[in-house]
Amino acid sequence: MSPRRFPFTRETALLVLAYLYVPVAVLIVYSFNANRTATVWTHASVDWYGRILVNPSIQAAAWNSLVIAVCAATAATVLALLAALATRRAFLGRGASEAVLNMPLILPEIVVAVATLILFVSLGVKLGLGAMVAAHTAFCIPFAYLPIRARLEGISGTYEEAAHDLYANRVRTFRRVTMPLLWPGVMAGFTLAFVTSLDDFLTSFFLAGPGMTTLPVYIFSAIRAGISPEINAISAVMLVVSVLLVSLSFFLGRLRR
């Protein structure tokens, strides 16, 4: 006899799924709407996708988002890798170090964004791309760190001992054994950091400086002029890219355990 289930389990699950995904589904459906007014359906079309491809401000914003995400994710991944290696063995203050590393996950982003803005302004740091990369790097570190550390914990120290035993010194062991085994975790960490940076609005909004936009900032300002099907299309593209990358990172993280 199968264990008795609570009544309405299936119905509840469907409700929750609808609650989570109906808004997104509506957005995607309307991104294929031919009507100028975003909320009135006439007939299907991919016009808006064509439009966003040739819109120069969207192109510029997308390019900025991409540059920031690549730079910030790379820097964050390198730092996270070093941090993960450094916190591998037990030492006094290891727990505290990890807490500090993961702090961006719990600090309210608005507070950090405002604080960073005030700091940069008072130091005379020019707002714009550089400032945004620096700030994005900081909050991306935990996203890169967690998969790397998880992977590192899964690699038993015996592999490294075996490499030493087979005459590889510390540097060679790192190159030939530790790093190849760690690689899927590093890729997963990079991808998560990349997506996190790509989706960020608050920090970018505060640190963009005049005349500078990223995709999320562009969407925000465009929406103030009214909801247009164009925004639906950009959002759908961002959604697909994010989902693909996160799936990729999940897949990499589980690769060849």
């Binding site: 015996t158 592999y159 001992e161 035993d165 590889a168």
Partner: peptide
């Protein structure tokens, strides 16, 4: 260990 003329067969094998 990498300067000692001995090799080890590990209990868990530790094959890469």
């Amino acid at each position: 260990p990498f300067h000692r003329p001995v090799n080890t067969v590990f209990q868990s094998y530790a094959l890469f």
